[in-house]
Design a protein around this nucleic acid. Structure first.
Lengths: 282, 282
DNA sequence: CTGCGGTGATACCGACCAGGTATGACAGCG
DNA sequence: CGCTGTCATACCTGGTCGGTATCACCGCAG
């Protein structure tokens, strides 16, 4: 009946992540008994057992797993609300745009130029972040809009406007035999055992097993390719940051990549709306 | 610093909506002084003035307007989390699908049949609701998935899968001169002063001004058309509930309508995912 | 079998704060 | 000039949040 308090959700998330009351309490900066009590109270109010207290540790029930996801989203939203409200009040009329470092050079430049040409252009601050960080930046209020790529990035829960769809290309060491070709297929790449395809982190930060190197950032990738140690599959606009030692070859059968402008669904601020309108005119 | 509590947000939303402390306090079931104090405390903790206390009433600052939207979303999410958690624990493996009463007969039947034919089909409960209620049902956890229509419904913050795109038709009284035509344009409709176009409620429940009648539900609309008092523009599948006294005529220049399956972004439950997969195969 | 270490739960207590009542300050208005 | 209605302030009370001490329980080593 009475709604969940964010304090309870914070506590629950801590316990659900640590699966250990004492450690969770330490992380929260409180003692263990109040934490036990708070969780019990939460369970009583919901009328649901969230945790199975097996001697030695704790496991989540299925209801608990569901609540964990919801609670994380709610806490993110609450933190975001506070940040955005403070930013709105501080008077600095500035939009923060998050983008993958190094990606979409051309598009970003065009977008910024077009926006600056608008009559009442609000200043845009560009926030470069790592791989899949844009979604988190949007969700917790550190950014207002983001350039993201479908199908690579997790766009769930975000509003988007498609900007540009492009082919993918293989980035090869310049001297490699395949680099002379004008077009390749995924099968061609897989058939070259001396050049394993680089592995990107998944949304949860883990890597799927495979022979290629684990990629953390673009600089590392660029160097590995230049050294002839790996090959990467990227969207065509990545050409803008290639080295002389790199060659880009179009991939005929790789899925197309769409770069989108994304923003959190409830931030229908005039500034974001204006930028989206500008972007829609490409 | 320390995160917003949902209690504070509830209080703030009440005041922001009523623009009146005493009325808001009454609505919340508490006295006015504690409310004043709670709001002051919220403002102090955020370091932001949310309300401009002009003698006689209260107005929202721009920061306050922003927080109002965010707070509503957070409270919805919290209520949804509680509902879903309770439902998950109650063991009833049942999906609740919300749809506009009367719309999408054919599509809904096909979807339900296809789902029932799946090997491990979870039972689906169909929840018929009024005009734009599906989004709220999804957001506050009363429904798991919904059939909605673009561009009519507010899909912000929901994940969607396109199901069916169709033309719109004009629904006319059977005896009307225009009913004999095989195709119409929006201009044709606007040029008939004796048959004003029905007005649907906007997302906020208000109506834009105009000569046509204000529509609350489909039965009312059907009767008004049959009586020759108005004409409506609907998607082609609405033909399934037409009366003998109605005639549907295709509209050449009206925007197409896409019916989509929508679900809240964080409910990646296996059941919802299964239904989406079934739906994607049309 | 019996301590020992480690789990979460319980008992109890103090301090804080949410909530109530009474009242104040201030503006509009008859 | 009161009267009314606004929100803010002052003060009190009770619930509850958090802390310390302890219990109940289990696995394990000796």
């Amino acid at each position: 009946m009475d709604p969940l308090e964010t304090r309870e959700l914070r506590y629950f998330v801590a316990v659900a992540e640590e699966l250990h009351f004492s450690r969770a309490a330490e992380r929260l900066g409180i003692a263990q008994p109040p934490l036990s009590r708070a969780i019990q109270q939460l369970e009583r109010r919901l009328g649901v057992t969230l945790l199975e207290r097996d001697r030695r540790g704790v496991t989540l029930t299925s209801a608990g797993q569901l609540l964990l996801g919801e609670a994380r989203a709610i806490l993110d939203a609450a933190a975001a609300a506070a940040r955005r409200t403070r930013r709105a009040a501080s008077g600095t009329k500035r939009l923060i745009l998050a983008t993958k470092a190094g990606a979409n050079h051309e598009l970003l430049r065009k977008l910024l130029d077009a926006h600056a040409a608008e009559p009442d252009a609000t200043e845009i601050e560009v926030l470069l972040c790592g791989m899949g960080d844009q979604a988190r930046m949007l969700r917790d209020g550190r950014a207002d809009v983001a350039l993201m790529q479908r199908p690579f990035d997790a766009l769930a829960g975000l509003d988007t406007e498609d900007l540009l769809t492009e082919q993918q290309v293989a980035i090869l060491p310049a001297g490699h035999p395949l680099a002379a070709r004008t077009s390749l297929t995924m099968a061609d790449l897989a058939a070259v055992p001396d050049l394993p395809v680089a592995r990107w982190p998944r949304h949860d930060g883990s890597y799927e097993p495979g022979p290629g190197p684990e990629i953390h950032d673009q600089a590392q990738l660029a160097q590995l390719i230049a050294l002839g140690r790996t090959v990467a599959v990227l969207c065509a606009s990545s050409r803008s940051w290639l080295w002389d030692a790199h060659t880009a070859v179009p991939l005929a059968d790789a899925p197309h990549v769409t770069t989108v402008l994304a923003w959190p669904p409830h931030s229908r601020s005039r500034d974001v709306a204006g930028l989206v309108r500008t972007a829609a005119r490409l």
